[in-house]
Computed example of a mutant assay.
Amino acid sequence: MDSSLLADLVLNGLQFGLMLFLLAAGLTLVFGIMDFINLAHGSLYMIGAYFTASFTLLTGSFWLGLLLSVAATVVVGIVLEVLVFRRLYHRNHMSQVLATFALILIFNESARLIWGEQPLRLSTPDILSQPIQLWSGFDYSSFRLFIIGTGLAVAALLYFIVTKTRIGMLVRAGASNREMATAMGANIKLIFTSLFAVGAALCAIAGALLGSILSVQVGMGESILILAFVVIVVGGIGSIRGALIGSLLVGGVDTISRTVLPPLFRSFMSPEAASNLGPALASILIYVLMAGVLFFKPEGLFPARS
Rank of each mutant, 00 (worst) to 15 (best):
S3N: 13
S4Y: 13
A7D: 15
N12Y: 12
L18C: 02
L18F: 07
L20G: 03
L22S: 04
A24C: 11
L29P: 04
G32T: 12
M34K: 00
M34H: 02
D35C: 03
D35N: 07
I37V: 14
H41E: 11
M46F: 08
A49F: 09
F51K: 01
T52C: 08
T52L: 08
T52M: 07
A53I: 10
F55M: 10
T56P: 05
T59P: 05
L64S: 02
L64R: 01
G65N: 04
L67E: 08
V70I: 11
T73H: 01
L80T: 10
V82K: 02
F85P: 07
R86K: 09
R87T: 12
L88G: 03
R91A: 10
R91Q: 14
H93V: 12
M94P: 14
Q96L: 03
Q96C: 00
V97A: 03
F101N: 05
A102I: 12
L103P: 03
I104K: 00
I104N: 04
L105N: 05
F107A: 05
E109I: 12
R112Q: 12
I114H: 01
I114T: 14
I114M: 06
E117Y: 13
S123M: 13
T124K: 05
D126C: 08
I127P: 13
Q130V: 15
L134V: 13
G137H: 01
F138T: 04
D139T: 14
D139H: 06
Y140C: 02
S142W: 13
L145T: 05
F146W: 12
I148M: 02
A153Q: 06
V154Y: 01
A156Y: 08
L158M: 09
R166D: 15
R166S: 06
R166H: 05
G168R: 03
R172I: 14
A175T: 06
N177F: 12
R178W: 10
E179V: 14
T182E: 15
A183K: 00
G185T: 11
N187T: 09
N187Q: 05
I188D: 09
L190C: 03
S194R: 02
S194T: 15
L195H: 01
F196T: 03
L202I: 11
I205H: 04
L209W: 02
G211E: 09
I213V: 15
L214F: 15
S215K: 06
V218S: 05
G219L: 11
L225P: 09
I232R: 00
V234G: 00
G238D: 11
I240N: 01
R241T: 15
A243N: 05
L244G: 05
V250E: 09
G252S: 06
D254E: 15
T255I: 07
S257L: 08
R258E: 12
V260Q: 01
P262M: 02
P263K: 00
L264F: 10
F265P: 00
F265A: 00
R266H: 03
S267L: 05
F268R: 00
P271G: 03
A273K: 04
A273F: 14
A273L: 15
G278E: 09
L281C: 06
I284F: 13
L285G: 01
Y287T: 07
M290Q: 01
A291H: 07
V293N: 02
F295Y: 15
F295G: 04
K297F: 12
G300I: 10
L301R: 00
P303M: 02
A304Q: 02
S306F: 15
S306V: 15
